[in-house]
Each structure stands twice: as C-alpha cells, then as structure tokens.
Amino acid sequence: MTREEALGIVKEAITSIVPDADFDSLAPDERFRDTLELDSLDFLGFVETLSDRTGCRIDEDDYPSLTTLADVADFLTDRCWRTRD
C-alpha cells in the first residue's frame, strides 16, 4: 500500500463517522481526534474500519501512533507493508 492509498483509507474511515470532516483545515500535526471530536466509541469504530479496510491487526499498543493524519498514514503504510512481508 502506498502512503497515498493509506491516507485515503484514513480519511474514508473518519468520514464514515464525521461525514463533513474538513481535512483541509487540519494541520498535518494536529490531533484530529480532538479537533473533530471523536469520542471513545467513535475512535473504536475508526480503528475497526481501518482494520477491516487494510486487513492489518491494530492493537491497543498502536493507538499512540494514531494521533495525527500523517501518523496514521505512516503507521498503515509501514504495518501493512510488514504484514505482507
């Protein structure tokens, strides 16, 4: 998976919860969970969607890597790459 594809999946997963999420106004290093007001249940759904779409396992320990859009895209690119290996 390319990083671009990963970012697309991340945005799609967020959009399924916050359909009108404005990604343009999100700074690359911004904590999207705070800005878009994803509560714990939303976040759980977000992680599940990512998992379903990519086939990657995502554990509690990975959550700190899911803070900004860039982080999540990097994480998916890296993880899915390694999973396929």
Binding site: T15, V18, P19, D20, E37, L38, D39, L41, D42, G45
Partner: peptide
C-alpha cells in the same frame, strides 16, 4: 444519510448525535 449524520453531529455533538 451522511449529510444527516453530519448535520445532527454538528448540532448535537458526539455525545448525543445518532450514529
């Protein structure tokens, strides 16, 4: 459907809005 979800969420916030 998505528009309505977004609409409700904007007004009500995640604690109250329909999922």
């Amino acid at each position: 459907g998505r528009e309505l979800l977004a609409f409700a969420r904007r007004r009500l916030g995640p604690a109250v809005a329909p999922r």
